[in-house]
């Protein structure tokens, strides 16, 4: 969950969820007497448990085939492992009174590709995403998400390659309205300067929110301009 304030700035104190670019764990081929199939199956074991599961730092052994069938009532850590490969990234608008509104849900962010070394050729990779995910069923599962927003306006932020620190900065926000109605677009630009050597926030500049209307099926380039004195 990512939380934003009404000026579209990230609320750091609420944004503790973390998605790593990749994670490595193990599968061990074992038989589990406590599972109904009673046959050998790959079991997930994580030798780098990153979060507490059931009060201790360990993950698994968790059956891969049970995970694929969303049978999460079996030991060990099935719900946790399931979330690390099927989770969605939800963006929330947080109002001053504490109410929250769901802005956007990004699917297929987590566990987008799951691979291991091929058994037949050690120099080849084997894509085992389908061992973990029932790809046909994923749309049904996500359809249950409460109050799904209509994401019918696409945005693409275009950056010029030749921008230099100290220049007038012009960014182009390309918006495309895919709906059959006029949509009101609120653009809020926040520019933050971060020291790359100390990973420290130096300053932030927030531009006032601009409103514009975009007709049905239309697209438009919205220029976002920042003068040097506004960010230096």
């Amino acid at each position: 969950d990512i939380h934003w304030d009404i000026k579209q700035r990230p609320l750091k104190q609420l944004n503790s969820d973390l998605i790593c670019a990749s994670h490595v764990w193990n599968e061990c081929w074992m038989r589990r007497d406590d599972l109904s199939n009673g046959e050998h199956d790959w079991q997930i074991i994580d030798s780098t448990p990153v979060l507490m599961c059931d009060g201790i730092r360990r993950t698994g052994p968790c059956s891969v085939s049970f995970l694929k069938n969303s049978e999460l009532g079996f030991r060990w850590d099935s719900p946790f492992v399931h979330s690390t490969i099927n989770g969605n990234k939800a963006h929330w608008n947080v109002y001053p009174d504490g109410n929250m509104e769901l802005l956007d849900v990004q699917e297929n962010i987590v566990g987008s590709k799951i691979i291991t070394r091929s058994l037949t050729n050690e120099f080849e990779i084997e894509d085992i995403t389908e061992n973990y995910k029932n790809l046909m069923k994923s749309s049904d599962r996500n359809g249950n998400f409460v109050k799904r927003p209509n994401n019918d306006v696409d945005f693409e932020l275009k950056l010029s390659d030749d921008m230099k620190f100290g220049d007038n900065l012009t960014l182009q926000l390309h918006a495309t309205n895919k709906s059959n109605e006029t949509r009101t677009i609120a653009t809020a630009l926040s520019l933050c300067i971060i020291s790359s050597s100390h990973q420290k926030l130096i300053s932030c500049y927030d531009q006032p929110i601009q409103l514009s209307n975009l007709g049905a099926g239309k697209n438009e380039n919205i220029p976002l301009k920042i003068r040097p004195e506004q960010y230096m």
Binding site: I19, C20, A21, S22, H23, V24, W25, N26, E27, C28, W29, M30, W42, I44, I45, S47, T48, T84, I85, N108, I109, V110, G111, S112, K113, I114, I115, T116, R117, I128
Partner: peptide
């Protein structure tokens, strides 16, 4: 990185005990 090394060590130990083991990498989109 360290994460992969942990997995490699666990696989070595597992195989030494006769339990087939493989290393799995999960990629998340940015």
């Amino acid at each position: 990185g360290t994460n992969w090394q942990h997995a490699a060590i666990l696989c070595s130990l597992s195989r030494a005990l006769g339990i087939p083991c493989r290393i799995v990498t999960i990629y998340n989109a940015a």
